[in-house]
């Protein structure tokens, strides 16, 4: 589980920032997420949702408060939290299976075991048969699949995803959402996704967290079930057309929009 308590993040004064923007990105934010949740962080751009993710990943030290995974307070990056980046961050000098087994190489796992683990996760993300392909031969969607498989191979407790599908086309995006729910169901990991997509967040999340404009605090914390329903077998398009789904989506959209208007007023 993830426990964020009175978290504040402020950029140091020497870091460059545009005039009129507060150096305080997150101010006294608290959030508790049960194990196995799928959290979607949503909010106006520049609101600090990525900063929150980076604190949990350990890339950013909070200026006050704490973030903890399974009771362990986070200081720096660690193998208990896997990260999937928007620009995939794969290593082009390794082939697909080389990238997926990379976390296991770092840990000194034996070659045979590495390969077996990597193959298992590549199959899970639908890349069976692509093991020996070069990274630069793959499409954006396939690269993100490799990124997800790589993060899973490290066997983290929490999977952190920073706008993972932001650079993909609409169709690939929908496929990746379904893939993510499949992976979530198969592995039972706690997943945190930062996203700009209101429909995406509404569809995926068990915990949809809407953040305010900077400095970020929580505006809504909705408990949803659409992702769970898809994982249970309901078709994605059918769920997204439900009046109930549309109502929630519009409500969330309205609250994000309000935050954005305050920003631009």
């Amino acid at each position: 589980m993830i426990e964020v308590k009175n978290l504040s993040v402020a950029y140091a004064a020497r870091e460059k920032r545009s005039a009129g923007v507060s150096p305080v990105v997150i101010d006294g934010l608290s959030l508790s997420v049960p194990p196995g949740a799928l959290v979607a962080l949503l909010g106006p751009s520049g609101c600090g949702k990525s900063s929150l993710l980076n604190v949990i990943a350990g890339f950013v030290e909070p200026s006050a408060g704490t973030a903890a995974v399974s009771g362990r307070v986070i200081h720096g990056p660690g193998a208990d939290r896997g990260v999937v980046f928007q620009d995939d961050a794969l290593l082009p000098w390794l082939d697909v299976i080389g990238n997926v087994s990379f976390p296991l190489v770092l840990r000194g796992v034996q070659a045979a075991e590495r390969e077996a683990t990597a193959r298992r996760f590549l199959e899970l993300v639908g890349l069976k048969g692509f093991e020996r392909r070069s990274i630069w031969e793959l499409s954006g969607g396939m690269r993100q699949r490799v990124g997800i498989a790589r993060a899973l191979a490290a066997d983290p407790e929490v999977l952190l995803m920073d706008e993972p599908f932001g650079a993909l086309d609409a169709l690939t995006r929908e496929r990746m959402q379904e893939l993510l729910l499949k992976v979530w169901r198969a592995t039972g990991k706690t997943i945190v996704v930062v996203t700009h997509g209101v429909e995406e967040a509404t569809f995926l999340a068990t915990d949809l967290v809407v953040l305010s404009r900077r400095p970020a605090r929580i505006v809504h914390h909705l408990k949803l079930h659409f992702g769970t329903r898809h994982a249970d077998g309901e078709p994605a398009r059918a769920i997204k057309s439900l009046p109930e789904f549309v109502a929630v989506r519009e409500q969330v959209l309205a609250s994000v929009f309000t935050q954005d208007e305050v920003e631009h007023a």
Partner: peptide, 17 residues
């Protein structure tokens, strides 16, 4: 690339690694 370094760090890479 800074994100590649971050990625490796998130898998627990040491400085030498």
């Amino acid at each position: 690339d800074a994100t590649r370094l971050r990625a490796a760090q998130s898998f627990g890479a040491t400085r030498w690694q």
